[in-house]
Write a protein that binds this DNA or RNA. Structure first.
Lengths: 241, 241
DNA sequence: CGCCGTGTTGATAATAATCAAACGCAGTGG
DNA sequence: CCACTGCGTTTGATTATTATCAACACGGCG
């Protein structure tokens, strides 16, 4: 048998990458073992607390990152302070904007977040050599575009009640990717204030609609943050999408 | 001098492509002269009337296209009929979704539209050979993502008045790309009903806010569709973005 | 214990939706 | 030529939804 083995055997793949989701579903899946090794030398794992800004005004960003765990919120703000969350990112999403430095968006850790961060320059160079990497980025960007447009429908045309149900459905289906059927429980990655900014509502309206859903038995609220969904189909129905 | 001349001299570039915006700002800019020639053999120019569906339920789409002129609206619809326009596309935007057939969006001609249409399979093959083409697609997709997120802020956090001003600003800056300063007039590519679906409002509210802007002198309304903007800065101010 | 951050609940106000009517205009046909 | 119709739009009156303002509840923590 050959001394140099194939990918599947993991022989040469950097330790940190072996268990990493980004290698399977994320952008790193486009890279050869050699590229993984050299990228790995320059990459650093970081654990950031909830609330920390990852990309934005203060954080001049000369690096990209993969999300290993946790939830990142993308926010747009108006001059007078009104703000709108324009996207949530989960593992193993790629974090950062290729070819452009600023698009008026800040990215903050919504929960405790673990990222694998690499120098911008290195990725930009790898993109040139590896079309497959650019392909992965295009795929993620298309996915984000679909999600953004889905949410535009939610923001523009749904009632407060439908909005909250849509949000809960979104979280329910993203927080626990390998779920089959039956009851489902999770911790909300966002505060009521964040949820309001995501839905284009006020915190009071969010709160009222949550209690409404609770009283109707669609959800069970444990500790403000812990939510249980006895029947996901019933929740999705309320989101009417 | 060489018999085979460079791109700039246009010698070998297909007639139809020579004056086409898509070759400069659009995706065709990624292609070699040879590729343009072979693509041109398979491509067809089409003129479609306002209201015609370009991509959607009825129109199973095995082709992509470049917009030569006119405005295309991208719409999402809910089961009960509520709908939201999630994007507008202008020349020389690329029309069609790579790698995916359906994303629940329909594309309709909002005005009379001219497109240059090519077989899906041909582009998909060219993408494999020409990383630069995929790069162009990524750039357009990133642009659309930015626009979608900008609009999410509009939908979620702006007042009806700000929304209408935002819409007018958007059209004013896209309909006439080479504009310097001074008054500006244009024909709205959308009906009031479309505008309402774009802004997440009703037609009545759109109409009321338009008259309000008219009475305040921010815009002049000629023939329902014809709008004049004496001072763009003043309009943009109303959009507070 | 008091305080702060977060979330809920209630009363009232503002905003936009809904319902209803009429307008302007283009096309049609007597 | 002039009603007549149909469509997109405007305007008005009223209602519904959500925001705002305000008070309170709960849990953690100095």
């Amino acid at each position: 048998m050959d001394a140099k083995r194939k990918d599947i055997h993991n022989s040469d793949i950097p330790l940190l990458c072996r268990a990493c989701e980004a290698r399977h579903q994320g952008v790193c899946g486009a890279l050869s073992t050699d590229q993984l090794v050299s990228l790995n030398k320059q990459s650093t794992r970081k654990r950031v607390n909830s609330g920390v800004e990852l990309i934005g005004e203060t954080q001049r960003t000369d690096s990209y990152a993969n999300i290993i765990s946790g939830v990142v919120k993308l926010t747009k703000m108006m001059a007078d302070g009104r703000q709108q969350i324009v996207g949530l990112q989960f593992a193993p999403d790629f974090l950062g904007r290729p070819f452009r430095s600023d698009s008026g968006i800040t990215a903050d850790a919504a929960t405790e977040v673990n990222i694998c961060s690499f120098p911008k320059a290195m990725i930009d160079r790898m993109i040139k050599d590896t079309p497959e990497l650019e392909h992965k980025l295009l795929e993620q960007t298309l996915k984000e575009l679909d999600e953004a447009r889905d949410w535009m429908l939610t923001l523009g045309r749904k009632t407060a009640s439908e909005k909250v149900a849509s949000f809960l459905s979104l979280i329910a289906t993203h927080i626990n990717p390998e779920w089959e059927s039956g009851p489902l429980s999770f911790e909300l990655p966002l505060t009521r204030s964040d949820i309001a900014d995501f839905l284009g509502l006020t915190i009071e309206t969010v709160s009222r609609q949550m209690t409404k859903l609770r009283k109707e038995g669609v959800i069970v609220i444990r500790n403000n943050r812990m939510v249980e969904v006895p029947d996901l189909a019933r929740l999705v129905e309320r989101a009417s999408a």
